[in-house]
């Protein structure tokens, strides 16, 4: 049997042992995961990014404009000393400024305007039937927005609409939780399948 499969199988069992109680075998597997993840991240970042996108083009390809991001990156190391920590504010400011500049219009467009446009649908279908789905979306959005309207006390009509909004929210949370449980079960099924077929060879 492949040594990788043996190690993966034993580590899966080690992690499952936590279901009984915390134990050294589980701790060892958990620490190994963290260590390997960090090591892998460092290697990938160095080889796939720093070397390929910065050091090779800068020092071998002569792309001197890369000195700017390189210099900004170096300033981040200023945080290691209290005397130089202020220097790290420069790259952070560049990151936040450019990040916000890029993100705000993109989010307004994709998350707000496009979603608003999708919310407002014709209430009748092409064949003349009531567009129930569109109506539910519209009512759901309006009621949920009413729930988050805090400038007036939730009484009377506003109270009833806001209460309906909480029902829509509860349905959303329930659905999301249900899907999350389903997702975790799929993960368990995947590991059990691995143990039964690859590790123990009980199934094909």
């Amino acid at each position: 049997m492949d040594i990788g499969i043996i190690i993966a199988g034993l580590l899966t069992l080690a992690i499952f042992s936590f279901l009984y109680r915390d134990n050294p075998v589980y701790k060892m597997a958990e620490s190994l995961l963290i260590g390997v993840s960090i090591g892998y991240f460092l290697v990938i970042t160095w080889d796939n990014t720093l070397r390929a996108n910065l050091f090779d083009p800068l020092f071998t390809g002569g792309e001197i404009d890369l000195l700017i991001p390189f210099g900004l990156g170096l300033l981040m190391f200023g945080r290691f000393s209290s005397k130089t920590s202020a220097l790290s504010r420069i790259p952070i400011a560049v990151l936040i400024g450019s990040g916000a500049g890029v993100a705000i219009p993109a989010m307004l467009g994709a998350r707000t305007l496009a979603q608003m446009s999708a919310t407002v649908q014709p209430l009748l279908t092409e064949s003349g039937w009531l567009n129930v789905s569109g109506l539910v979306v519209l009512v759901g959005v309006l009621c949920t927005l009413a729930y988050f309207y805090f400038s007036r006390e939730h009484q009377g009509t506003l109270g009833r609409v806001a209460k309906t909004g909480t029902w829509f929210l509860m349905i959303f949370f329930g659905t999301t939780f249900g899907y999350t449980v389903m997702s975790r079960m799929s993960t368990l099924i995947g590991r059990v399948e691995f143990l039964l077929s690859d590790f123990l060879k009980l199934t094909n």
Partner: peptide, 16 residues
């Protein structure tokens, strides 16, 4: 993954 369905459903409905 199934856990992300409710996150992406609005984008699917809007055609994004």
């Amino acid at each position: 993954a199934a856990s992300m369905v409710t996150t992406y459903d609005p984008y699917l409905a809007s055609g994004q």
